[in-house]
Simulated scan of single mutants.
Amino acid sequence: MTTTHVLALDIGGTKLAAGLVSSTGEVRGEREVPTDPADAAAVGAALEGLVDAVLADARAEGVEVADVVGIGSAGPVDTTAGTVHPVNIPSLRGFPLTEAVAARAGRALGRPAHAALAQDGQCFAAAEQWTGAAAGAPSVLGVVVSTGIGGGVVLDGRILTGKSGNAGFISHVGVVLDGERLPGSGALGVVESYASGPAMVRAAQARGWRAGERADAKVLTADAAAGERVPVEVIAAGTRALASAFLSAAALFDLTDVVVGGGVAASGEVLMAPLRAAYAEMAVYPHLADVRLVPSQLPRLSGLLGAGRLGWQTLSG
């Protein structure tokens, strides 16, 4: 037998992934399949298949697996009911996720199992605080800036979950009083209305940038890197909104680090430089000004790593 591992699941709009995570943060035996956003039965069967396959591989290799499964999922989540309600996976809304996964893992292990659930943004933050850009830091906000904005908070080394499991839901932090309405949720003036990839593309096209073209955030950041005025100004405005949300979180949680990941953040200094500049301008107190804003250092397996961290924290109580 090797060192005990926990089974981890990462549930997203395009793929479902599973793997084993060690107590020191190594991921092994990972598998993934596409997500079917429209068929709950297909998603349930795919999850059961992943659990069976990963645990069968573990048995064949003599790997010891604990009886706790960590699950990271697109949110919102309901940790009390063990369900999720993701906007981009309609088939999973109301699905008894933790119950189904725990039952399947228990059958494969031959003993009762328990499943712990967290938002994918929380798992991102947990992974970065465990082995990533903020490894070992006491208070970390992890934020994914992509088609939407997701996030999570780790305090004193543990994932902050809240009453429903949605702590760190930074997409709906207000940055403009009675501002723009967010498509989908209807929230007014929240940061996702200004700083997500689609929001910045909409703002740029409203100013004539590539009007009528099928442009995306990757094109926007590339044009900004080339010095085009409208993309540069729109990204400056978006990152200013993002910096305002970060400052609110830093003031509430006395953060040491903010780690930024996701597709838009992958553009590097095109986003990080104006983001740091805006934050530095707003942060008037020393304990806010010294917060580090850093890009993610983790590879694509960060979702599994964070779900595994959740599993280990559940085991430790």
Rank of each mutant, 00 (worst) to 15 (best):
G262Q: 07
V176A: 07
A215G: 00
A125K: 02
N166I: 12
V140K: 04
G13A: 12
G306V: 01
P295I: 03
F124T: 02
E192R: 00
S248A: 15
I235P: 01
A249L: 15
S139A: 15
A278M: 03
G152N: 06
P286E: 15
V27G: 03
T83H: 05
I149S: 06
P198Q: 04
L50G: 04
D257E: 11
Q297C: 11
A241E: 02
A137V: 11
L141S: 05
T79C: 09
L293Y: 11
T314R: 12
M1F: 13
G148R: 03
H85N: 06
A56Q: 14
F95Y: 11
S73I: 03
F253G: 11
G142K: 02
A249S: 14
V101G: 05
A289V: 12
T98E: 07
G162Y: 07
A249K: 06
A66S: 10
A38W: 14
E99D: 12
I170P: 03
I170A: 06
S185Y: 13
I71R: 02
L271W: 11
P96Y: 09
R28H: 07
A108P: 04
A60K: 01
G150A: 10
S171T: 12
A277Y: 04
H5L: 00
E128R: 02
A273S: 11
R28A: 13
I159M: 14
E32N: 14
V260L: 13
P76H: 10
T239E: 02
S22P: 01
V260C: 08
D216F: 01
E192H: 01
V63I: 15
A251D: 10
I71P: 04
A187K: 12
F169S: 15
H172C: 11
V176F: 08
T161S: 14
G303L: 07
L109A: 11
P286N: 13
G303R: 06
A42R: 13
R300N: 10
S22A: 05
V43C: 12
V219D: 10
M200F: 06
Y194I: 00
A250S: 14
A199D: 01
L7M: 07
V232P: 00
S296I: 03
A236I: 00
P231N: 03
V190R: 11
L177F: 12
G261N: 08
A277M: 05
A280D: 15
D156W: 03
L16Y: 04
A113W: 09
G82P: 05
S185E: 15
D67G: 05
A133F: 12
G306M: 03
L55D: 09
A42M: 09
A41M: 07
A102V: 01
A273G: 05
L109G: 08
Y285H: 14
R202H: 06
I89V: 09
A283P: 09
E180A: 00
G263Q: 04
A167S: 13
V51S: 05
P34N: 13
V77R: 05
V260E: 12
D257P: 09
L155F: 08
I159S: 09
Q313V: 01
V154F: 03
G82W: 11
I170H: 02
G150P: 07
V143A: 10
E64D: 13
I71V: 08
S146Q: 05
G186R: 13
